[in-house]
Computed example of a mutant assay.
Amino acid sequence: MPVVMPDKLTEICKSILVRLGLSEEDAFIIADSTVKADLRGVHSHGIMRFPSYIPRIESGVVNLHPEIETIAEGHSYAWIDGDNGPGQVVAVRAAEIAIKKARKNGVCAVLTRNTNYLGMLAYYTMKIAEENMIGIMFVNAPPFVAPYGCREAKLGTNPISVAAPTGRDFPFVLDMGITSGVVGKIRLAALKGERIPENWAIDKYGRPTTDPEEALEGALVPIGEAKGYALGLAVEILSAVITGGSIVPDMPHPIFDLSQPPNLGNTIMAIDIETFVGVDEFLDRMNSLINHIKGCKKAEGVSEVLIPGELEYRLEQKQLKEGITVHEETWKQIGLLAEKYRVGLEMV
């Protein structure tokens, strides 16, 4: 499989998007967030997704030049309408608002409606963490998950992300949905002809399956059974019910449904550390907490206990130097798009 340097991959994707009519700035945000997902090993939201963005743009279902409107705001909140703009672009704008208001007022929650698929949540919460703040984000998703006790999909994977500085090379980064597996990884397994773990999904009859094709016809199962299901409902409330975005019964697929805008909603929050214990004390306390965790008695066969975000950071640093391995079929699709929009794959 081809190995591509991340800056080259970003430039290729950005150039295709510019040819499609996006501004240089907005095209970079989408390309950068896509490649960042692969750098951190979140391939389900990485370059394999990029070809699916193009039909949405070509069909006009995404507004490439949104007029992002503030519906309501106060010292510590804002409610914005994304004007059906690219999800990545609107989410970056929401994060910027959250950072600015939190710096003045300690905390800020920005609620967003009328936006599109935005990829890896950590891309946005990490931007907040870089400002010595804690970033929190909630997003709902189309119905792929069977609630506890059901055998059909009625709830989304509904991810949540939390990022915070640690004073070390890597930030703390939680970025997870309410399932052990995600649809993107199941699609990737189907593409590669691989099996999936036993605890990921059920088939259309409600039986556990390791066949990704059967899983795509059935449903994912929540982690922790009833607890994962309850967490998913909480995220639905925080990301869609309160924002005016599509709730799961009314949500078209934000990637594959070209018939209408998805009206996705999400909530992003920033907590300014300096307002409370102060950055220096916070980092000291974080370091003490991390040392406490890493100093534990390790289970048999375990050489190191990692902090959430640490493994992804190491992989990112490795791939920044060595390049990203791109699946052959995905690279073929990128090549066809590059040819169609007159972008050279050897342009960098």
Rank of each mutant, 00 (worst) to 15 (best):
M48P: 06
M48R: 14
M48Q: 12
M48L: 10
M48C: 07
M48E: 11
R49A: 12
R49C: 10
R49N: 13
F50M: 05
P51L: 11
P51M: 12
S52H: 10
Y53C: 11
Y53M: 03
Y53P: 08
Y53A: 09
I54C: 06
I54A: 11
P55W: 08
P55Q: 05
P55H: 03
P55K: 09
P55E: 12
P55R: 03
P55N: 07
P55T: 07
R56N: 07
I57F: 15
I57G: 05
I57W: 09
I57L: 15
E58R: 13
E58M: 11
E58P: 06
E58T: 05
E58H: 04
S59H: 02
S59W: 02
G60V: 03
G60I: 05
G60K: 06
V61K: 04
V61C: 10
V61I: 14
V62T: 08
N63Y: 14
N63M: 13
L64Y: 10
L64P: 01
L64H: 01
L64M: 15
H65I: 01
H65K: 15
H65P: 00
P66W: 09
P66L: 07
E67T: 13
E67A: 06
E67V: 05
I68A: 00
I68C: 07
I68G: 02
I68S: 00
E69F: 07
E69W: 00
E69S: 07
E69Y: 02
E69A: 04
T70M: 10
T70R: 11
T70D: 03
T70W: 03
T70A: 11
I71H: 00
I71E: 05
I71A: 10
A72V: 13
A72S: 14
A72R: 12
A72M: 12
E73H: 14
E73G: 06
E73P: 03
G74R: 06
G74D: 14
G74L: 12
H75I: 00
H75V: 00
S76K: 02
S76Q: 11
S76R: 11
S76D: 14
S76N: 13
S76A: 12
S76E: 10
Y77V: 07
Y77M: 08
A78G: 12
A78F: 04
A78T: 02
W79M: 13
W79H: 15
W79S: 13
I80Q: 10
I80F: 06
G82T: 11
G82A: 13
G82P: 07
D83S: 15
D83A: 15
N84C: 01
N84A: 01
N84T: 04
N84F: 07
N84S: 06
G85Q: 13
G85Y: 12
P86T: 13
P86W: 13
G87Q: 01
G87K: 02
G87E: 05
Q88E: 13
Q88A: 13
V89Q: 03
V89N: 04
V89E: 02
V90Q: 01
V90K: 01
V90N: 04
V90D: 04
V90W: 03
A91P: 02
A91C: 09
A91L: 03
A91V: 12
V92M: 05
V92L: 06
V92P: 00
V92R: 09
R93G: 06
R93D: 06
R93H: 14
R93S: 08
A94C: 08
A94L: 09
